[in-house]
């Protein structure tokens, strides 16, 4: 073992020891001091009640299927609409001017309004027109509200991806005789989309959580179902159960997005 390696091993051991000690101390503090708070007994009973959790978890999982369904049909629609808006904002020919204005207005409006408000306005407003079934469904219009909001964000990410492709790629493609449309489709977009996959993963995670906002206009998804149990059992544990179910999905997804991001950073270098 070289002198350098011995020194590095010593350093590694030292930092592992420090990390272990500080973690143990922090856990001990939590374990000792939190139960000393005056309300701890009550909080424990109403938020961390094992029996309530066991009783409600299966029903919560059933309700979570609704979240997954809404997510599953909204996500592809968001990807398509977002890409179309990004392309509209990028269109160069004068005939496309109205499209460009529409794209800019769209992103300004739907990024500027809180998601809850959009869900309320579209979810209550459009069924209020007195449309016949199934066109008055809150599932439908709630999803539309999510699609419009998220498409605005996703479009901006696609646009930054398009801008991130070096202009020399465009020059090279044009010099071969390709048309503007072919350059976009065959050369720019494939690279642009690859560049923004990690960012779009983060949008998917955010969408997964925001599906719960639809509970405000009717659909009984997991947050709403947890609320029903809370009123029924006078206990907050179902909310904790719902949070756990979300975490089981979002933590691996977030880690995966981080992994993609890190890999991309390595490739750039």
């Amino acid at each position: 073992m070289t002198r350098r390696q011995m020194y590095e091993r010593h350093q590694r051991r030292k930092s592992t020891l420090i990390a272990t000690v500080s973690t143990v101390v922090a856990m001990l503090c939590l374990y000792v001091f939190v139960p000393m708070t005056p309300g701890w007994d009550k909080v424990q009973k109403s938020f961390f009640n094992w029996e309530v959790l066991q009783k409600t978890l299966p029903k919560l999982l059933d309700a979570f299927v609704v979240n997954i369904m809404i997510f599953a049909w909204s996500a592809p629609a968001i990807a398509v609409l977002g890409l179309l808006i990004a392309l509209a904002r990028n269109a160069k020919s004068p005939a496309m001017f109205p499209l460009r204005v529409f794209g800019a207005t769209f992103t300004d409006v739907f990024r500027g309004v809180p998601v809850v408000l959009t869900v309320y306005l579209i979810g209550f407003g459009i069924p209020g027109l007195g449309l016949p079934r199934p066109w008055n469904s809150p599932y439908l219009w709630g999803s539309v509200a999510l699609i419009l909001t998220y498409a605005a964000y996703v479009a901006e990410i696609f646009r930054s991806g398009i801008d991130s492709v070096h202009h020399s790629q465009r020059a090279a493609a044009l010099s071969l005789g390709l048309s503007e449309g072919q350059v976009m489709r065959d050369v720019i977009l494939p690279q642009a989309i690859r560049n923004v996959v990690p960012s779009q993963m983060n949008m998917l995670i955010a969408l997964q959580k925001d599906v719960s906002l639809l509970s405000f206009i009717g659909p009984v998804e997991i947050f709403r179902q947890a609320g029903v149990f809370k009123s029924l059992l006078a206990n907050f544990t179902p909310y904790v159960g719902a949070a756990i179910i979300f975490l089981v999905i979002t933590i691996p997804a977030t880690r995966y997005a981080d992994y993609l991001m890190a890999r991309q950073m390595r490739e750039r270098r």
Partner: peptide, 21 residues
């Protein structure tokens, strides 16, 4: 129509500009 002209004239650049994908 620039496309018809460029199809008859080839160009090669300093930075290669191959399509990486």
């Amino acid at each position: 129509d620039p496309q018809s002209v460029r199809a008859r004239i080839g160009m090669v650049f300093q930075s290669y500009n191959l399509f990486p994908h």
